[in-house]
Simulated assay, not measured.
Amino acid sequence: MKYFVVFLFLVTSISSLAQTTEIPTKISGTIITDNTGSPLANVNIININQVTGTTTDSKGNFELAVTQSDTLHITLLGFESLRVRVTNDWIKNKKTTIQLTQKAIPLHEVVISPYYLTGYLEIDSKLIPIKEDYRYSISGLGQGYEAGQYAPEAFGKVLGSIFNPADMLYNFFGKRPQQLKKLREMRKDDTVRNLMETRYDRETISLLLGVSQDEIAEILTRCSYSEAFIKSANDLQIMDAISGCYEQYKILKKK
């Protein structure tokens, strides 16, 4: 009788574990425009929960591994971004059609302000602003990017945040381990990295980390990245910068 109870307990435990651990299954879909029904190629689809991605082919079709209730973030330049929840019906039917709406983008006036040079080096050198930002090498990219002032001040802001519980940097890194784990996972998926390399809107990073674009700028400022870098860097560079700052934070905190 005792062995039967133990056996029954093991069977129940295995069954419970199987129910809670869903195995990803492949689904497919077609993305079209909402006004003409034309298929859209090169649409980016990111599974926010699994941190994997793919793009549509020339006929607007895609395939992606998901589990039920995963959220897909769908983006294409010139179209409104869309978030779609994976339903049980979608998994059963294996295929669905998704419509994207084209953006109405207003054109703003552009003012070009050239530097009026005199021809005298001593005068002209004072007219043109000179950036004093240090050049940093960001992991995995093999290039240098502006990253604020040189050490020790660069590390001072990170170090200061460790001993100040009210500091935003401390609160951000201390309370969002799962989001930062997603950020690290994004670096492993080539489709996601290629997408991030072409984006400058911070939308995907904001969604994954659960923060606003203003907070992203504040985080990078606290990590001593320059305003020029924060404004001009693509999303992949921003992602690597935040990841690098987090690694510095962990090392300094241990010390």
Rank of each mutant, 00 (worst) to 15 (best):
S28N: 08
L236I: 11
T56R: 04
S161G: 10
E80I: 11
Q68S: 07
E146N: 12
L117W: 02
V43E: 02
S139W: 00
M1S: 14
Y249R: 04
K2Y: 09
E122Y: 06
R222H: 11
K126T: 08
V43R: 10
L17S: 09
E109L: 09
G140D: 03
E227I: 10
F9T: 11
G244R: 03
T101H: 06
R187F: 06
I91K: 00
R135C: 07
I219N: 10
Y116E: 07
S69C: 03
K157D: 13
P24V: 11
I91L: 03
T30I: 15
I105G: 04
D240A: 14
I230R: 06
T20H: 06
F155I: 12
G29E: 00
K59G: 12
D214W: 03
I162W: 05
N88H: 05
G37M: 13
R176I: 11
I128P: 05
S13I: 10
N61K: 04
G60I: 12
T87A: 03
T55N: 15
N44G: 13
Q50T: 10
V158D: 07
T56P: 02
N42E: 11
T67M: 08
L40R: 06
S16K: 08
K26P: 00
T101G: 09
L82E: 01
I91N: 00
E203F: 15
K26W: 02
L209P: 03
V211A: 12
P114E: 04
E109H: 09
V66Q: 00
I219Q: 07
T25R: 08
C245R: 05
E247T: 09
Q179P: 08
E122Q: 09
E203Q: 13
Q178I: 15
Q149I: 07
V84L: 05
E218P: 02
K131T: 14
D189N: 15
E153M: 14
V84D: 00
T75Y: 08
G160M: 08
A41H: 08
L72T: 00
D70Q: 01
H73E: 01
Q178D: 15
A104D: 04
I123M: 13
L127H: 10
G160A: 14
I74K: 00
R187A: 15
V192L: 14
R83P: 00
L107K: 03
S206W: 02
S13C: 08
F9H: 01
T191K: 15
A18D: 02
E203T: 14
F173M: 11
Q213L: 11
D133V: 06
M168V: 04
L236T: 05
A147Q: 08
E63H: 09
I98G: 05
R187W: 04
Y200I: 10
R85G: 00
R202C: 08
D235G: 06
D189L: 12
D70T: 02
K231D: 07
K126R: 14
S139D: 01
S161R: 07
K131Q: 14
M1H: 11
Y246H: 12
I128M: 04
I45A: 09
D133H: 13
F173I: 11
Q102S: 14
Y134F: 11
T71E: 01
L209E: 01
P39K: 14
I238C: 04
H108M: 07
L10S: 02
D189R: 03
P152A: 15
P39D: 10
R135A: 13
D167V: 07
L40W: 06
Y150Q: 13
N88F: 04
E132W: 06
T71H: 01
